[in-house]
């Protein structure tokens, strides 16, 4: 089965069921990601300054008690802008990933269980889609439709659907080939039951891992677009936009450029730490 090279482990049998314990690195990763998710949710209630307010007379002002991360190129509070930026950076990426995984996952399992012509048609279609580099697809759609949050969510979701389809299909094909699915099929069970009861519970682990990886890709793509000025548009700003608007502070090493970039890195590395430290049977290696 050459199409299934992406799979490293599926539903390892005969292992006693035990709760797994996440190693320290994984706990740190989970902590960082959890922290940012909380910030994204409660952001508006805890910001020290209004995101648009000019609070500093200096541009790229230095850090001090009132402005813990200094000020940006217009003299706005960097900390407040990062806190609010979390909503866009994490929210848009999460929404797009969720959509992509929902569409790709459902179709992937359907293809695996139906086999034959349905599988063939879906696989060919997504193979062709995946052969357009993700940044190119994004640029084409944004060139045509302009950039708004719904367009970004939709575009990134469509971009990552073929990848999700591939992984889910490959995982489901592996489980589908196992004898207990054959037994259920010989019993006369329908497609819905096979997907719901026999396949889904046994690919849940790797599939969650895949969700995490895809979220990282989506976040990197979105922040890259924002950095190019083609992502989240002013007056809203995600972390990528913050780096872009403050790029002139680069020569001075201003925190206004560095901190948003560090925030992105902390989330993506955090997710990776969690994924790398999951037990083997959860793993699935995604493609870039």
């Amino acid at each position: 089965m050459s199409a299934d090279q992406t799979i490293t482990a599926v539903a390892a049998p005969a292992l006693p069921r035990r709760r797994f314990r996440l190693p320290l690195a994984g706990i740190i990763g989970a902590g960082v990601v959890g922290f940012w998710v909380v910030i994204a949710i409660i952001g508006p209630y805890i910001v020290p300054h209004d995101v648009g307010a000019l609070v500093d007379d200096d541009l790229f002002g230095r850090m001090r008690w009132a402005l813990p991360l200094g000020s940006d190129y217009l003299g706005r509070d960097v900390l407040s802008r990062i806190i609010i930026g979390a909503r866009y950076s994490i929210g848009v990426a999460a929404a797009a990933t969720f959509l992509a995984v929902f569409m790709g996952g459902t179709l992937g399992m359907l293809a695996a269980v139906s086999r034959g012509a349905v599988d063939m048609a879906l696989s060919r279609f997504f193979d062709a889609l995946i052969s357009i580099p993700s940044k190119m697809s994004a640029l084409v759609v944004i060139a045509a439709l302009g950039s708004s949050i719904p367009v970004l969510v939709g575009t990134v979701a469509v971009i990552y659907t073929p990848g999700a389809f591939r992984i889910w299909r490959a995982l489901a094909v592996n489980v589908n080939a196992l004898d207990f699915v054959e037994v259920a099929r010989a019993r006369g069970e329908g497609t819905g039951y096979l997907i719901r009861e026999e396949i889904l519970p046994n690919i849940a682990g790797p599939v969650l891992t895949d969700f995490g990886l895809r979220f990282v890709f989506a976040m990197l793509l979105l922040s890259g677009l924002s950095f190019l000025g083609l992502g989240v548009q002013p007056p809203n700003a995600d972390w990528g936009s913050l780096v872009r608007e403050n790029i002139n502070g680069l020569a001075d090493g201003a925190l206004a450029v560095v901190m948003p970039a560090v925030a992105i890195a902390s989330v993506t590395i955090g997710v990776n730490l969690v994924i790398d430290n999951l037990p083997g049977r959860w793993s699935s290696t995604g493609e870039h």
Binding site: A11, P13, D179, E182, A186, P201, N202
Partner: peptide
């Protein structure tokens, strides 16, 4: 029908 691989013939979850 009963299969050879007892391990894979029962749904592990």
């Amino acid at each position: 029908i009963l299969f050879q691989m007892a391990d894979t013939a029962v749904n592990p979850s």
